[in-house]
Nucleic acid binder design. Sequence first.
DNA 1: CCGCTCATGTAACAGGTTACATGATTTA
DNA 2: TAAATCATGTAACCTGTTACATGAGCGG
Lengths: 189, 189
Amino acid sequence: MALRHAVLAALLEEELSGYQLAKAFDVGVANFWYARPQQLYAELTRLEEDGLVAGRDVPQDSRPNKRLFHVTEAGLTELETFTAASAKPAFVRDDLLVKVQAADHVDISDLIAQLTERAQIAQAKIDLFGTLLRRLRDDRTEEEFLRHGDRVGPYLTCLRGVAFERENLNWCTRTITVLEERRRIHARY
Amino acid sequence: MALRHAVLAALLEEELSGYQLAKAFDVGVANFWYARPQQLYAELTRLEEDGLVAGRDVPQDSRPNKRLFHVTEAGLTELETFTAASAKPAFVRDDLLVKVQAADHVDISDLIAQLTERAQIAQAKIDLFGTLLRRLRDDRTEEEFLRHGDRVGPYLTCLRGVAFERENLNWCTRTITVLEERRRIHARY
DNA sequence: CCGCTCATGTAACAGGTTACATGATTTA
DNA sequence: TAAATCATGTAACCTGTTACATGAGCGG
């Protein structure tokens, strides 16, 4: 099971409902994992059955009631065990890269369109992460926060997210430039 | 189907056997996708059934015979269609990031060990990709090659691979430094 | 003779995606 | 009144992983 530990890690910081978790694991706030809502609801059910998280009902007026989950002692132990075990390397699996790999055999305009779209998404994420980082470290400088802040885990993963998206953006614009230049040259004949 | 197009893209450059494909999709030569040998053999069978690739038997002495596959006209059309369709964004799903997210609640030494291991893997990949890039562009400078080389797709995906691993390495060493510093401070009490 | 590379698979299972379902409330 | 947000799921399906199986030749 893989999602399992990601959920536990996310719930360490604060009590969350399935719905809130889904938000975090979707749009890109959680840069260390991605999952669909259905998967999260299912996983929370299983985690509770196994006693790794516990939920409590929170009645709300003018909103449907919700269940907030927190990590139990057993859950923390499970996370410790998981952390001690060696991590399998992460792989790249990206449709866009497949398309660029085939660049010399397919329509360049399609490719440029998709690279442009990806670049925009990357920029949006960079902005989002930037805001998030500023909120996490509050007044402090990054250096100061990383030394003495009380919870740096989420900050560190967020730094990874920024770096990744920055490289992503960089590569997209570079690739677009190359492909456009080649199209221009080709168009002369 | 996802692997399908990755296989087609890989076969564009040269005729390959299942075994050769497996090599390319494993160790990290193909930086645009990852797959296990079993999956590739299965996918090649399906692709051939669907007429998107065609194989030919190559008898070898002092080696088992093999089947080399190449992309058919129908296969190329399929790739074009795929490229024209909009790509779904790629997500992060990394065990190591989950562990770092939980950094404030788990054993730091375990974390540092795994970050170190990951950093070494990243360095190895950077070297590998560097060699590959030099081979691809031959004598030419990168600028020159990207403008006038005849097949730049694999080069561009490889550039993405280098950038990714460089950021990976960077983040790992930075994170190690932060965690070690915090451990040092903590140890005083 | 042991382990590695070449060469190709099958079968059972775990994990993730897509489609579908429901229902209340707030905002435009 | 239509769309978005809050809130939670079920069921069928597709994809990918793990474990296992086979067999020949080459290098130490």
